[in-house]
Amino acid sequence: MKRIGIFLFLLVFGLAALALAAGDPAKGGELAKGCACHKSKGDLDGVDAAALTAKMQAYKEGKGENKAMISIMKKQSDQDMADLAAYYASLPKK
């Protein structure tokens, strides 16, 4: 019986973690209001959320040539990055 309780706890915890990891497009839209460059270009519209998250994480870790993006991403939480990725992934490709 104890194993079932532990299993259920882990299942619920895991589902909650997945929900957080998925990101909230509405919150991401609010965060993206400051992204004038990408908004005008539309270059991130419809891009896979996992790919965007990986790219943002790399910038956060200081990887890449774009010093502006490195600086911006270092200030973002993991949840902010998930929300931004969900927002851009939800937009139709231009």
Rank of each mutant, 00 (worst) to 15 (best):
Y59P: 05
K60V: 13
F7P: 07
K63H: 00
G14K: 12
L44Q: 09
L8W: 13
K41Q: 07
A49D: 07
A68W: 06
K41D: 10
D45V: 07
A85P: 02
K2E: 15
R3I: 15
D78L: 01
L8E: 15
A86Q: 08
A89T: 05
K63I: 07
Y59K: 03
A16T: 12
I4L: 14
S77N: 13
A49V: 04
L44W: 13
D78I: 03
A32Y: 03
L15S: 00
L44K: 09
A58E: 06
I70V: 12
L31P: 06
G34V: 03
S71R: 14
Q57R: 01
D24A: 09
Y59Q: 02
S90K: 07
L84W: 00
A22L: 01
E30H: 05
E65C: 10
A19T: 08
E61Q: 11
V47E: 06
A21F: 06
D45M: 13
V12N: 13
I4W: 09
L91P: 03
K63P: 01
G29P: 02
A58I: 02
V12Y: 13
F13H: 11
P25Y: 01
D48Y: 03
G42P: 10
A50E: 08
L84M: 01
G5N: 09
A82G: 09
F13P: 13
G62W: 07
